[in-house]
Design a protein around this nucleic acid. Structure first.
Lengths: 211, 211
DNA sequence: CGACACGTTGATTACGCTCAAAGATCGTGG
DNA sequence: CCACGATCTTTGAGCGTAATCAACGTGTCG
């Protein structure tokens, strides 16, 4: 991990976090924080992508979420991180200490509003993720994943490999691969190589995510 | 649904919500709010139990969470409720309009702190729920569910039936029943009737929930 | 160009679902 | 208080989806 000279930090970031913390660079695969580590810092993705993971003693792995540009992560209810955070790609992360800036204290209301917004959005995403895992077939999980990812990114490029998709969706890498092939065969999506894709029937995928 | 005369409201509730809203009583099975309803109110369980559910067009149902005494619910990121809330048992609920009391505004910091606490706790529970659905077997899901419920309630009584457990755990009612039988056969839990139980090996269940 | 990680496809297995029926449990009213 | 009915729960038999085990492509980078 590399610490950038604060003096070099530009002001390219949206309020209200500029200048609040330290910018750090992580290499692909590097830990940003680990499971059971003390949780007293907050993080914001500047560039690149991050995943949070939890590994069970027998090796089963669950990905909690993926984070991209401007997403905040690292928020915990308790004292320690229940998931680890790892750099999915090389990434730049803004790290800062929330301290008394958390809601419920008398602090900068702009920061509190941003934290509140980020937290409720994360809760919302967590609930959608839950829906996907609880009552959807393998084909639906993979299709809805591609849809939500393309909506979030604005383009069709997977930042993660098949194993990460599988561990996010509660499937095996083989099943993910098969479902991607089936989605292609059914004309739902077109792939260019393993990671670039274009959705051909987003409205049908939206129906899968639905009510 | 019944509206209690505010004059009759006692002050039996913890700060900071007392006197803030209206107390309402819902009968078992009654909707507190529905899917796609406008989300501008917050709720707090006074007594009884509540479930949030989402139903897909083909009838598949997912339970988002269960809420018991003093739990807050109804918080949404967007403008509408993505899940419905229903009374699991007859229950009393405190309903109030958060308005400018949300973090990020200049309002009562005690209320903001309580909202923040409730929200991060809900996020935490949502993540645990996610883990359960993603990478756990049917037996593990049912066992860990009994454990977490007993930790939350302080006693071993199920407020919900098998169908609700199934829809929370992403299983069928038959599988839930079979796993309960198996847990009993393995001496993990003892049942008195269909709803009262006692955990005999909580430490083993804790290991199932684990890292 | 070669080596290695990553991804796809095939064959077989197993876990949980579906369909079906019997057994508990609970509320209600005689 | 007991009998009845409705609802909920348990158990059984067979099936289907996704997991596992295995081999073959493909893409990427020194």
């Amino acid at each position: 991990m590399t610490l950038l000279d604060p003096a070099l930090q530009t002001l390219a970031h949206p309020e209200p976090f500029e200048g609040l913390g330290v910018r750090m660079v992580f290499a692909r695969g590097e830990d940003i924080y680990t499971q059971d580590e003390k949780a007293d810092l907050l993080y914001r993705v500047i560039s690149g992508a991050v995943r949070t993971t939890r590994i069970m003693s027998d090796g089963r792995r669950q990905i909690g979420d993926f984070y991209f540009g401007d997403d905040m992560f690292g928020l915990e209810c308790g004292q320690t991180h229940r998931f680890a955070a790892e750099a999915l790609t090389t990434c730049e992360v803004l790290v800062f200490k929330p301290g008394a800036a958390l809601p419920g204290h008398t602090g900068d209301t702009r920061i509190q509003a941003a934290l509140w917004e980020a937290t409720t959005q994360e809760l919302e995403r967590s609930r959608e993720h839950l829906m996907l895992l609880g009552r959807h077939t393998a084909l639906e999980r993979v299709g809805v994943f591609l849809l939500s990812l393309s909506r979030r990114m604005g383009h069709g490029e997977l930042a993660m490999g098949r194993q990460d998709m599988a561990d996010y969706l509660g499937l095996t890498i083989e099943t993910v691969s098969r479902m991607l092939s089936q989605l292609q065969a059914e004309g739902m999506v077109e792939f260019f190589g393993a990671r670039r894709y274009r959705l051909l029937r987003p409205e049908r995928l939206r129906a899968w995510a639905d009510a």
